[in-house]
Design a protein around this nucleic acid. Sequence first.
DNA 1: GTATATAATTAGTTTGACTAACTAACCAAG
DNA 2: CTTGGTTAGTTAGTCAAACTAATTATATAC
Lengths: 142, 142
Amino acid sequence: MSRTDSLHVADRLHSAAIRLLRAVRVADAEAGVTAPKLSALSVLVFAGPMSLTALARNEQVTAATMSKLVADLEGEGLASKRADPADKRGVRVEATAKGRAILEAGRKRRLALLQAKLAKLPREQRALLAEAAELMLELAKS
Amino acid sequence: MSRTDSLHVADRLHSAAIRLLRAVRVADAEAGVTAPKLSALSVLVFAGPMSLTALARNEQVTAATMSKLVADLEGEGLASKRADPADKRGVRVEATAKGRAILEAGRKRRLALLQAKLAKLPREQRALLAEAAELMLELAKS
DNA sequence: GTATATAATTAGTTTGACTAACTAACCAAG
DNA sequence: CTTGGTTAGTTAGTCAAACTAATTATATAC
């Protein structure tokens, strides 16, 4: 039976997150696109175009970090920046068609490792992990 | 009802891991000890003294990376290195008392954010997350 | 108009990950 | 015993991602 005191759960979740991300690192090299880039791209694809600051906030990094990252994405043709007509200080960032394609391909490749492992699990465990993931996302945001 | 196809679960887990780690990053700055260092120290404390290569394997990084990290830990008095009498090529690494104390304090501080959030969850959800964490750790290793 | 806040960018710094190269030691085979 | 292959650890170099500080331009309030 798993311990359920908050500290222990927090500890295990923390370790699990670290290890999991390290485990899928391998496939990233194949895509030539890094996890933070794919993550930002993913937000643009699913939530649509937004300001750079909004994207940074969503990704929980500073504007400076996101400025660089978006510049890279733009340089790689995966995202585009355009002056925001509604606010001359800012820009609108959106994913390109290439970005969408790369995201899908890269995402599948990166997750293939996880997927293969998950596919071997009983359906109940997968369901459990799916539910846990949603809880974790809520935790991270709150 | 959560989707249970492997790709979707993999995707959500991946995002959740990224976000979770970012969310707890704040408290790390207070400790003056980084997550990778605490993670390695954690292994030493719980699994006991070991070779540098074993530690690297456990943490899923290269020996080169771990060599540097352990050197830092030693410099900070959190871990100690000793020639391994059983194998002249290698060293034994172990946590110091200071390391243990820092780990405990830092761990609590770092996890306090998660803990506070988790404490608000129903016990069943915490149990679910605890079980998920163990599954994730197994996934990362397999 | 002035003062304050916000958006984005750039420079600099640190950390952690990798690879490449190296030395030293270990082990098995001849 | 010697030799060849493997293993353990270290160092140098490179790159990405995170931060802070500083800057310029714009928006907002008074």
